[in-house]
């Protein structure tokens, strides 16, 4: 069984026929070809597949593609325009918030979700907002610095 999915993906409207049992994660990676969103634990435990649905972080590995009908979905590919990195991307790059990089798209999207709701978060608020994501490399200190740096870049108008 398939359904027509109307979705605003990274700011662009599109329509695709999707089977009922297709996960949003597989839709993004296999149907649309946006492989920035990563498949991690496949069970909602790691946050590597985090995307924004209507600006709220959600796990695409546990979301059915057909259930985001009519919603806005943003993936890591929505960030950075015209060869310039977004504030959160620059934060992770400049503060070394990324090591092996596998968890990074998920962390970046969770951070983007946080900064859209709260442009100037405290350390605790950052920790709370990233609680659904796991990184086995950085030890999280650099990631928190990266998000703080991103908030400053955004506030200064240096990067979107």
């Amino acid at each position: 069984m398939a359904k027509i999915l109307d979705i605003t993906l990274n700011g662009r409207k599109r329509a695709d026929a999707v089977p009922n049992n297709l996960l949003l994660l597989d839709y993004l990676r296999e149907v649309v070809g946006l492989t920035g969103t990563k498949t991690g634990c496949d069970g909602g435990e790691c946050g590597a597949c985090t995307v924004l649905i209507d600006d709220r972080p959600a796990l695409s590995c546990l979301t059915l593609a057909a259930s985001v009908q009519g919603h806005r979905v943003d993936t890591v590919e929505s960030l950075g325009r015209g060869g310039h990195l977004s504030a959160v991307q620059r934060g992770f790059h400049e503060k070394l918030g990324s090591q092996c990089g596998y968890c990074t798209p998920g962390f970046i999207m969770a951070s983007v979700g946080l900064l859209r709701r709260n442009p100037n978060p405290s350390d605790t608020e950052i920790l709370d907002a990233l609680g659904s994501n796991i990184c086995r490399c950085t030890g999280y200190v650099k990631i928190i610095e990266a998000v703080k740096h991103a908030a400053q870049l955004q506030a200064a108008g240096v990067a979107p």
């Binding site: 069984m1 049992n21 996960l23 296999e30 059915l64 057909a66």
Partner: peptide, 12 residues
């Protein structure tokens, strides 16, 4: 590539 078995999906 089906991660899930097939099912009917209803969105009332």
């Amino acid at each position: 590539m089906d991660a899930l078995p097939d099912f009917q999906l209803l969105r009332p």
